[in-house]
Design a protein around this nucleic acid. Structure first.
Lengths: 347, 347
DNA sequence: TGACGAAATTGGAACGTTCCAACTATTAAG
DNA sequence: CTTAATAGTTGGAACGTTCCAATTTCGTCA
């Protein structure tokens, strides 16, 4: 069944008008008379016509597709970001190509090339580690709007939307210090990323302003995952002078830190204060609820999409670097003023 | 810059061959001479040519795009499923359209329509709740291969890939019973889904074969989320005769149950046995590591993609309903043989 | 040397849409 | 009653590729 494709000329013939008129109807043009529009629409429904976007894309340049490439979909931060993007992109009548690079540069190169071939009218990219400005050059040369999210790439000449990592870290550490902590660790994350650098700098600055020295022992990198958090806290607890609190690179690490604490019979939030970063949805409902620097990934996805759409519609526009403010969501996991509760069972 | 698009005829002219030859080179046809192939490829690189898939799609029917629609990307089970799909689909030279429906039927209708317009050559769908066979009818009428994942829709006449929910539940409950539990609850999930029905039936059957009665009190539905798990276990703990173990609808619920348990100062795995369903990546690293029915979401995505690709390549093929086996991954969260450890601090 | 088959190459007609300029009806103004 | 303006409608030429049938080039064998 459905051997032959139904095309505009088929409905034109059936409706007794020209294909041009049908095309006008499809584009909801105000030029066509109300009654003919109704008739054409009726025939469209009747014959089960489906619009062929490949043909349309061929004729006109613009394409109603936007691409989104993320470095790790498995991380719920990025999954939420993607649904944020999808939300606004869909509402604008676009459709999203989503690709996952798993932090692999060659994979990223492939998917970007593939998206270009499909004529995406814009790209939202959370770049894989090690992405350079040169990787994006062909895109900007071709005049394709690009919005970088989460990780900025200096000198790429495209818009970016990042969160205020430095301010967030400062706020978190300040809070910890106010609650009496003197030995605060910075746990998790890969040291060679800009995000890590900014958060760690905020951590150091806040410590400094409180007159505390920052000790390299207390900065422990790891994979930015739950498993990484477990190993980081283990390492931290091997220190002679153990920390009593930690700012974690992200929420996944923070959850891992909580796990590791429990494995040592320490209750996060009571025996040790932990603060995360990102505020993924589970942060609110976890036990103890995670105190974290709220970045609102879904909202970030939405804003990135809006920014991209704006650039797409208004032709070419100046690249802008937006850093969105963050706020500290204070919940239970940082509840420990030092010594508030003396743990009976030691070790 | 890059005012004019570079097309096949441009490279044909520059390479001193015809556009047909260029097209042949692009398709890696064995028909063309090795030396001309090299020359053409050189020119392609030199001029920065990018292939126009819209034009190609227009000419030929097939499109190198597959669509994947999931009901909740925010749930890491589906995120992992999506990366599994992406993996094999990308390796096969396809690209994926991913859309999130948030369980909304009209959203689903829209995205499926949009994907058809883009000429996807196949669809992997994890249908929103309430999806009916009629919703998929236009797709099968148009001869577009569809693979349903996770949730099957009876009578839709398309292939499906589900996990053996019944057997998994049976294995889990059997394990609990062997460890001495008599009052086992079934927590979380919406009662009106086929997946819920299958898992609950397995739960009931296993109880029955052990000579235990199934009590409606112990079957407590909730949203299939972490928050839902918290409320479900709270409700369970209000019962006069409390359960000592629970099979949860999925891992998210199981994590919520653990949270709720801790909020009552009960340690999951010691004071109460909990088993999840799905085996998301965090299950392994959580503390306590979650005993769960392993479904391998990523592998499932891969198999779904392979199945779809097979159908796409081999023209039309009989719809097949595959139910993939599951295994019980025994970890710590079910560690409690009843009474094995007497909790000192009661309440 | 000529003929033949195989290997390469090629021009032109699609594919289904949009855009443009031109056209026809209809209405309003003089 | 003519003219001008306005509202709708229309045919045909693109867009960049693939496919087909036809053609050229080449090596081989009688």
């Amino acid at each position: 069944m459905a051997k032959e494709r139904v095309t505009v000329v088929d409905i034109a013939r059936a409706a007794g008008v020209s294909k041009s008129t049908v095309s006008l109807v499809l584009q909801a043009s105000p030029l066509v008379n109300e009654s003919t529009r109704a008739k054409v629409n009726a025939v469209i429904r009747e014959l089960g016509y489906v619009y062929n976007r490949s043909a349309a894309n061929l004729r006109q340049a613009r394409s109603k597709i936007i691409g989104i490439v993320v470095n790790d979909l498995t991380n719920s931060f990025f999954a939420e970001l993607a649904v944020g993007v999808d939300e606004v992109v869909q509402a604008a009548g676009f459709v999203q190509f989503l690709a996952n690079t798993s932090e692999k540069l060659d994979r990223q190169r492939e998917v970007i090339a593939s998206m270009r071939e499909h004529g995406v009218s814009g790209l939202i990219i959370s770049p894989a580690r090690g992405t350079e400005a040169a990787d994006l050059a062909p895109l900007v040369a071709a005049g394709i709007p690009v919005v970088l999210v989460v990780r900025d790439i200096p000198g790429a000449g495209v818009s970016s939307l990042t969160s205020d990592n430095h301010a967030g870290a400062v706020a978190a550490v300040r809070h910890l210090v106010e609650r009496g902590h003197r030995r605060v660790a910075f746990l998790g994350g890969f040291a060679d990323t800009a995000v890590f650098e900014a958060r760690m700098r905020g951590y150091g600055d806040a410590l400094g302003e409180a007159g505390l020295v920052v000790s390299d022992d207390l900065i422990i990198g790891s994979a930015p995952s739950r498993a990484g958090g477990v190993t980081a806290i283990e390492q931290a607890m091997m220190l002679r002078e153990r920390p009593t609190a930690a700012l974690c690179f992200n929420d996944a690490v923070a959850f891992g830190v909580c796990d590791g604490l429990r494995a040592r019979r320490l209750e996060p939030g009571e025996d040790f204060a932990v603060i995360g970063f990102d505020d993924v949805i589970e942060a609110k409902t976890a036990v103890p609820a995670l105190t974290t620097v709220s970045v609102d990934p879904q909202g970030m996805g939405e804003r990135a999409a809006e920014l991209l759409l704006k650039q797409i519609n208004s032709g070419r526009v100046e690249p802008e670097a937006i850093v969105s403010p963050v706020r500290l969501a204070i919940r239970q996991s940082c509840g420990a003023a030092v010594g508030r509760r003396v743990k009976e069972i030691s070790s």
